[in-house]
């Protein structure tokens, strides 16, 4: 396969401000190479990741979503990452019902000092999504009025 034709997945990375985002920053200032496919969206806490954000990202054309927060017990807000864990596990089941491979959603614990881990996760996840191929949305999620955002939340 020629270089131009290679599938470049678009991945949204929801990173918490205190651990994962700082870790990603560290990877950057340490000049580590990581896949540019992860498009970072900073939140204060992984607990802020509303499941609708993930669905919306897929709807808008993301091929994968990475949610990264602090290691268990290290959350800046004490337990936001546990909430993220619970929601992610539930959301994976919902994704299946939408016909989205649950591997396209990944939850990782990355501490502020783990720049190297961020780079590794970004690279691994990019390769994994690349292998899965582009996300093909079912018509329902793409256009269906029954799945307008507000309804998904309700």
């Amino acid at each position: 396969m020629k270089e131009q034709e290679r599938f470049e997945p678009r991945i949204i990375g929801f990173l918490c401000n205190w651990c994962a985002y700082t870790g990603a920053d560290l990877a950057g200032v340490s000049r580590m190479k990581s896949a540019p496919n992860v498009r970072v969206l900073r939140l204060m806490c992984s607990g802020r990741v509303d499941p609708t954000f993930v669905l919306r990202a897929f709807q808008l054309g993301a091929d994968g979503v990475l949610v990264a927060g602090c290691h268990p017990g290290d959350c800046h807000y004490q337990e936001g990452n546990y909430k993220a864990l619970r929601r992610t596990l539930l959301l994976k089941r919902v994704l299946r019902q939408f016909g989205i491979d649950e591997r396209r959603l990944r939850l990782e614990w990355i501490s502020a000092s783990e720049g190297e881990k961020f780079a590794r996760v970004a690279n691994e996840f990019t390769e994994e999504i690349r292998a899965l191929g582009p996300l093909e949305l079912t018509a329902a999620l793409e256009t269906g009025p029954a799945l307008e955002l507000e309804e998904v939340r309700a």
Binding site: L41, L43, M44, C45, G47, R48, V49, D50, P51, T52, F53, R56, H76, Y77, G80, K83, R87, E150, R153, A154
Partner: peptide, 26 residues
């Protein structure tokens, strides 16, 4: 402290997280 956990959980969408509200993130 503004973590936003409650914002993400509110089933009525009644909570706004300033600086990181739903519309900004969307």
């Amino acid at each position: 402290k503004g973590c936003g956990t409650c914002v993400a959980a509110c089933p009525a969408g009644a909570i706004t997280g300033y600086g990181f509200n739903d519309r900004q993130i969307q």
